Each structure stands twice: as C-alpha cells, then as structure tokens.
Computed example of a mutant assay.
Amino acid sequence: MKPIHKTLCFLLLSAATTTAFAQILPAPAPIFSSTTFALPSTGRLQWGGITALGELYGYVQLNGVDMWYGTSGSAVTAVPAAQATNMLRGGNIAGDLLLRSTAADGTLHMQLQSGNTLTSLDIPGQVSWGGQVNASGKVAFGATVVDSQTKASSTNAYLYDSASGITPLGTLGGAWSGVSAINDHGVIVGNSLTAGGKQHGYLYENGVMRDITPTIRDAEVKMRGINNAGEIVFNQYFPNAPWPVPYRAFKMVDGSWSGINSMSEALGIDGKGNVVGISLSGAESIINMNGNTYMLADLVDGMEGWRNLQVNGINEAGQIAASRCNDRFCEVIRLDPLSAVPEPETYGMLLGGLALLGFVSRKRRQRQV
C-alpha cells in the first residue's frame, strides 16, 4: 500500500473513532465549584432563582413555616412569608435589584431598586408577584387579578422601563399572559392563552407579541428562558401522557427547534447555550453542554456525602442556583463554572493525534531496523 493510501485510511479511521467516542464519553472531571449558604434549620426547598451577579433567592419551608430566603455576599436571610418585605426576587449585572415588598394594604408587589432609587411596580387592583430585570433596567413581570366574588384569578404580563413606565404586553387572544424571561436586548419570552384556550409560547420584541409555538399536536408549551444570543428553551406538555412522559424539553435557535436528549423539563439556559433541567425519570438534575447530557452532581466538586442535587436556575454567566441534602439537613448552594466541558470532537482529535504519533513512531522504528 502506498503511503498516501495509508494516510487516507488513517484519516478515515480517525474520523470513525471520533464519532464512536462522541457517543460513549464518560462524565468529565468536576467543572463546578460550590458555594454554600446554610439555612438556620432543616428546610424543604421548593423554589429558587439566581441573579446576574450570582445572588440566590427563593422559597423554603423551615420547621413547617413558609419562608422567603435571599443571599447577599456570603450571608443568607430567611424571613417568614407572612412578614416578608423587600425580599430579593432578581437582579441585573449593574447591581439593580428586583424586590418583592408588602404594600400599605397588605398586598404584595414588586419594586425595582437602582442605587438609592426605589420604583414601585404596583398596579392598582393587581398583585405583581415576580419577574426579571435586564442589564438596562427593563423589568418584565407578571401581575394577577383576583375576582372578589368568584375568587378566580388571571395573570397579565407587563414591561417596565424608565422612559415609558409600565406597558401591558397583551395576549395571544386569550384571557391571560405571563412572563418567563427577558434578555439584555429587551426580548421577552413567556406564555399566553390563545383564543382557542391553548397555552402557547410567545416572543415579545419591539412592542409586538408573536406566537412561536412549534406545531406539535395536542401539546401545550411552557417557555423557560432566553439568553443574550436569542436561544430559547421551552417545555412541551402532553396532557394525556403518563409521568414522566408528559414533559419534554426543547431548544430553539434561529427559529428552528430540537429536543434535548434525556431531559424531560428544561429550567434555564446560559450565555453559552448550556441548558439545565430534570432527567426523563424526574429524579435527577442534569445539564446539556455541547450537545451532550451529564448528571450535574457528577460535575460538582465536593459532592461526597450529599444527595438530591436540585437545580433552581442558571444565569447568563453559567452560575447555577441549586440545593442539596444529606441525612440531616438541606442547604442552598451556588455552582460556579471552573472550566468548560471538552466537545466530543476534541476527544476525537486527541485520540487521532495520539494514533498519528504512534503511527509516526512505528515508521521511524521500521527505518532504524
């Protein structure tokens, strides 16, 4: 066989090896460090989130009492829900904070704290309950109207900015709409009821709301996040399918969508397109990076003795809000990226390079004999 033929055969073999190893890669070494925020007592963590600067917030049950918690630097504060005011509910890269506060009439509403300025996002007759603030200080949030007679409630989506105040986003034809996320370009994703009574996903940009729901029969959509590159994650819900099949996670890039392998429910996306979520079994927190899905606990340094790693959210920088438990108690933690997961092609190139070195070495030995 001529040398050029041998070289071509080697390149083909290397390409095949690259593909094969891309399918069977083991979990890499830990790539997240953990910062812990111990709550004052045993708590059952139920919900949480993370700001652009890595501060954590959420809801927890301590000794049977419903509490709101929030972090500031290395400290964590937990306050009974009935007494909670000015509790952290979001924040941007500039340090502006979104706070949930108690109004004079006892109802809850959102406030934006920017430096020494506190702006109320209160809407008469409605309870503003949550949202996100982007780098320029725009806030996408939801507010709820409760009928005093029937006690029925409906949600409305709004956008606040300092120039125009509070603007309703409208709906996709139905009775309500809600907010899921806003990126630093002011693009909002959320959910809305259609005129036909279905829950669809929308994208709101330049004052226009449009339906971006993929056409999958008998499925409803729940939007979960959008990054600054415009990549979107959402979940499809199939009402007639048994658990955990009802939920499947998807990612949308430039209008094209595809399923995320092994993920039943996406919870958020970072600036690199990495997606955190829940496994198909509904029991494990997982992360999809570079097209590959990993058990998140396998990537965290210092997880020995801990279990039930639960993801609560991820920010643009890739920091993850989570919680974990051992046999005695649970704690809130933040996962900070240490390094990137090598792409499958990297492993293939490395293997191919090693094989090439071996090939060259053998040829040298043959010449020396």
Rank of each mutant, 00 (worst) to 15 (best):
R307L: 10
V253H: 09
G165F: 12
R324P: 09
G190M: 15
Q319N: 03
Q199A: 14
N235L: 00
S180K: 04
G115R: 02
I166T: 13
G130V: 06
S148I: 02
V369E: 15
L53E: 10
S262P: 08
N315L: 09
G207R: 03
A78D: 01
Q61N: 13
I182Q: 12
P242A: 09
V79A: 07
G115E: 08
L45V: 00
G130D: 12
T213F: 03
S154Q: 09
V60Q: 11
I93C: 08
Y204H: 03
Y59G: 02
P337I: 02
T215K: 05
E284P: 00
L39N: 13
V60T: 10
A29P: 13
S153P: 03
S153Q: 05
A135E: 03
L299G: 06
D270Y: 12
N116S: 04
G230T: 02
I286N: 09
N228C: 07
I216T: 03
G95P: 13
I123E: 09
N134Q: 10
N235M: 00
T213N: 04
L169T: 11
G70F: 15
D301H: 12
G268E: 12
L12C: 12
T102R: 04
L39I: 12
L88I: 01
G64Q: 06
I260Q: 13
V145N: 10
A52D: 00
A241L: 11
G313I: 06
F141M: 10
T35C: 07
T171Q: 08
N191P: 12
Q310F: 08
V275E: 01
V341F: 01
A135V: 09
Y59V: 01
L159N: 11
R210M: 12
G91T: 02
A75G: 00
T213Y: 04
C325F: 05
K151V: 11
L169K: 14
M209P: 07
I24K: 15
S339V: 03
Y237P: 11
T346A: 07
Q113I: 03
A16G: 15
W176E: 13
A22H: 10
L53P: 01
D211V: 02
R365V: 13
M1Y: 07
P242W: 03
T119L: 14
I286Q: 09
G282I: 01
M209C: 04
A52Y: 00
W306E: 06
P239W: 09
A321E: 02
L309A: 08
I232L: 05
T71C: 10
N308Y: 00
A219N: 11
A322D: 08
Q126G: 12
A152R: 04
A82P: 00
G73L: 07
S258G: 09
M87Q: 01
I226M: 05
F250S: 04
S72G: 11
S285A: 10
R324F: 07
G73I: 04
A78I: 02
G197N: 14
S128F: 06
A15Q: 07
